[in-house]
Each structure stands twice: as structure tokens, then as C-alpha cells.
Amino acid sequence: MSRLLSLSVLLLAMQAAPAPADAPTPYDPWPSLQQEIFNGRALQDGSAVLAIEMPGRAEDAAIVPVTLRLTLPPGDARKVSAITLVIDHNPSPLAARFELGRDAGVSEISTRVRVNDYTDVHVVAELSDGALYMVKTFVKASGGCSVPAAKNAVEARANLGQIRLRQFAKPGDAATSGAREAQIMIGHPNNSGLQMDQLTQLYTPAFFVDELRVWLDDAPVLAMLGGISISENPNVQFSYVPTGGKRFRVEAKDTEGHVFQGEWKAESSGM
């Protein structure tokens, strides 16, 4: 059989063969999450209201940095009352909900999260008029929720609940707005419940900070309701506009009922 005839037979066989089945469409949990977390409320395009910054590919899936910025257009009299962070493919997708003090002027929040799989990350801002605005990004990471704790259990317990607060001038527009930044660091293993003890081969029970609240005097600045997606030793940094308050108060609670508190003098707004 000539080479040309062999090629013709091969082409006829390919035409006669059934087409391969279409690859299954990857599961998208977002429609169900939207229904469950936001009760099916309409979500508008939030590109003019907020922004999310995360690495496209995480260097360490257990401590992926995330920054949320509020970008309400000038002249918009509404305020952002809450921000919800959802990591779609995490075992517990609702990573955190941040509630903003009405007069605190919070415009930026940063923290560190665990990412368990390649996933969309959605951020939804709720405004004072009740409207919801959403943006999203995509992150490549794997296994962040099951990475063993960096410290052993004894060392982690020794540092449990230690809170530190840093205050510093906010770069950029701070000279005109008076904005400052603060960073809260809490010593806590924040166990996800998916981490295996390498000695016992048993899973370490979930144990994490599920509530963090910050006040300037008696005025609420920021609250975080967190879950297993927040990284070990929770770290939350935020911008704010000083209101004349003299002292910061911080209170954190975890899933075993521990309450951790701290109080610091508020530094001046000068650069």
C-alpha cells in the first residue's frame, strides 16, 4: 500500500471514529455560595467601589497576602459598612467578614489567608444603602489549609493570645487626609482542623480566632469575624482616620472561649 493510500485510509478512519466526549466543566461553587452567604441578593460590579490584591501564584499557600482597598468615587456620600472575603474552593469558603466603624475612615485592610486549591476569590462590599458590590481575582495555590503549624503545640500555647499593636503613618495621601495605619498581630495557631500531627497521625482539631474587635476610645474602628482560612498567628493591618481618640482597645475571642485583650495609647496623626 502506497504511503498516500495509507494516509487516506487513516483520515477516513478518523472521520468515522466518534468524537471524544467533551471534558467535564469544572465545578463553580460561586452561585451556591452567593445564594447561601448573601441570600441570593443582587451583586453589582464593584470595580469602582473596591479592589482586591493577591498574588496570581502563591509562594506559600498557608500565608497568602491579601489586601482590600475601598475606592468609592469622590462625591459618593455612601459608606462601606462591611466587606466579605470568600475563597471559593476552600473547605470553608467564607474566610472573613470585616465590619467597618461608621466614622473610622477605614479605606484599606490587609491580612494573610490559607488557599487550598486553584480558586476564584470573591470580595463583596456592603454599602450604607444596602447595595452589594463584588470583585474577584484568581489565585493558584494548593494545600494551604492542611499545612502543619509552624510551631509545636507547646510553643503555640505559650504564645496563645499575645497581642501586639503597631501604629505608623500611612504613606501617600496621608499628609492631606490625616490617615494612619495600624497592625494587629495575635499569637494563635489558628488550626484549620485539616492539619495532621506528624507524630500521632491524627488530625489536630480546629481551633482559631473567630472574632476580633478594635475600638478607638469607645468608637468602633474595625471588627473581623474569621474562620479557618485565616493564617496562623492572625495579622490584620488597616488604615483609619484618627477621630481624636486617646486609646486603642483590642479584643479577640477564639473557638474555645478564650478572650484576649489589649490597650495602647493612640499615637498622633502627624507624619
Rank of each mutant, 00 (worst) to 15 (best):
S81G: 09
F138T: 15
A179K: 09
R102Q: 14
D120K: 12
I63D: 06
H122C: 01
D117Y: 05
I83C: 06
G75H: 06
V123W: 00
I109A: 03
D173W: 09
A82E: 13
T67Y: 06
R166F: 06
A95P: 00
A77W: 08
A95G: 04
S81C: 06
E108D: 12
P93E: 01
L132A: 04
C145P: 01
Q162Y: 11
N159T: 04
L70M: 14
V135A: 08
S92N: 10
I83M: 07
H89P: 00
S146P: 02
T119K: 00
A58Y: 02
T176F: 14
V124P: 01
R164L: 04
A104M: 05
L85V: 12
I87S: 01
M134W: 04
R180T: 10
P148Q: 04
R114F: 03
V121C: 02
P148H: 06
A153K: 08
P93T: 05
T67F: 05
D60K: 15
H89E: 09
R180N: 09
K136I: 00
R166Q: 10
D117K: 04
T84H: 09
K79A: 15
D103N: 14
K79I: 14
E155K: 13
S92I: 05
I87P: 02
A156W: 00
L94N: 06
D120F: 11
D103W: 07
V147S: 03
E155C: 01
N152Y: 07
P93M: 02
R57Q: 15
L160F: 02
A174N: 12
P91L: 11
